[in-house]
């Protein structure tokens, strides 16, 4: 639903990078690999947290 706060595997805080990643790589047309490198998300466990995430708040909110 919302981005996980931390990486499931190593525990580093990844949530803080989500908005910039979404804006630049998911909505924008930058290369996700380059964006993640720039954000300092180095390990592949943390990278998959952002790459594979989908926000669902907009999908669920009409059914409150």
């Amino acid at each position: 639903m919302m981005v996980p706060v931390r990486c499931f595997t190593c525990g580093s805080v990844v949530g803080e990078h989500w908005e910039e990643f979404e804006e630049r790589a998911k909505e924008g047309d930058e290369d996700p690999e380059a964006v993640l490198d720039e954000l300092g998300v180095d390990r592949y466990c943390c990278r998959r947290m952002l790459v594979s995430h989908t926000d669902l708040v907009d999908v669920v909110s009409p059914y409150q």
Binding site: M2, V3, V5, V13, G15, E16, W18, E19, D55, V57, S61
Partner: peptide, 11 residues
């Protein structure tokens, strides 16, 4: 320690 962690998006 981290300022930009989104907790929840509110409508």
């Amino acid at each position: 320690a981290e300022e930009n962690v989104p907790i929840i998006e509110l409508k």
